[in-house]
């Protein structure tokens, strides 16, 4: 059953979190109005790593756990996302499989946007297209800045830290390769 939501209030929360101009709150609400809103129960899986992605989601309330499996099958808890935020958008931006599993932590409400609508809106003019692009870029910019900051901290360890094996050297090279894509 779809929950009844105050989309204007939720739009204002997105506007605040993503530092959008005042008029953007109504545009976010308009964007959400064309999504399918649904509730998730604690532990319910929204999507699974490696599956093909056909939907982007706006987390309207609650928290979502993000996890991946490593090469031997361990479940690695990567992060916890709190509303309001976007998730699952990467698969629709670059047509790639899901890079992680997203699971509800407690009750959640999400607004789902299917691929066809997403692709039409993201390239569209008008306030909905504009606010969707900016939300996406802002979300990815934050993700990237956080990841790069952590990698930087790791490739510049404390002075007394020994860099004494091939794995470490390879790790530095790989991290430096990632940072080649950084543009401040």
């Amino acid at each position: 059953m779809s929950p009844i939501l105050d989309l204007v209030t939720i739009g204002e929360r997105f506007r605040t979190v993503y530092a959008l101009p005042p008029a953007a709150a109504a545009s976010v609400a308009s964007l959400l109005s064309v999504c399918d809103v649904s509730s998730l129960e604690d532990g319910e899986v929204l999507f699974t790593e490696r599956e093909q992605g056909f939907t982007a989601y706006f987390l309207l309330s609650g928290k979502i756990g993000v996890s991946r499996r490593d090469a031997v099958g361990y479940v690695l808890d990567i992060s916890t996302l709190s509303a309001p935020t976007l998730l699952g958008h990467m698969s629709l931006v670059d047509d790639s499989p899901r890079s992680a599993t997203c699971t509800a932590i407690g009750p959640c409400v999400v607004a789902a946007m299917d691929r066809a609508r997403f692709q039409a809106l993201v390239a569209a003019d008008g306030p909905r297209g504009s606010v969707l692009r900016r939300l996406l870029i802002a979300a990815m910019s934050e993700q990237l800045a956080g990841a790069n900051g952590r990698i930087l901290a790791l490739i510049d360890p404390p002075p007394d830290f020994p860099a004494d094996d091939e794995t470490t050297e390879h790790g530095i090279e790989e991290a430096a390769h990632v940072l080649d894509g950084w543009k401040g």
């Binding site: 990467m90 692009r133 790069n148 390879h170 790989e174």
Partner: peptide, 25 residues
């Protein structure tokens, strides 16, 4: 959007690669 998606995918993949190496090592 396209540029940032590529950067993020690359970051995720390298992190996973290094973690896997560490666990094996």
């Amino acid at each position: 959007l396209e540029t940032m998606a590529k950067r993020l995918r690359s970051t995720n993949n390298v992190l996973q690669c290094v973690v896997n190496e560490q666990r094996a090592h």
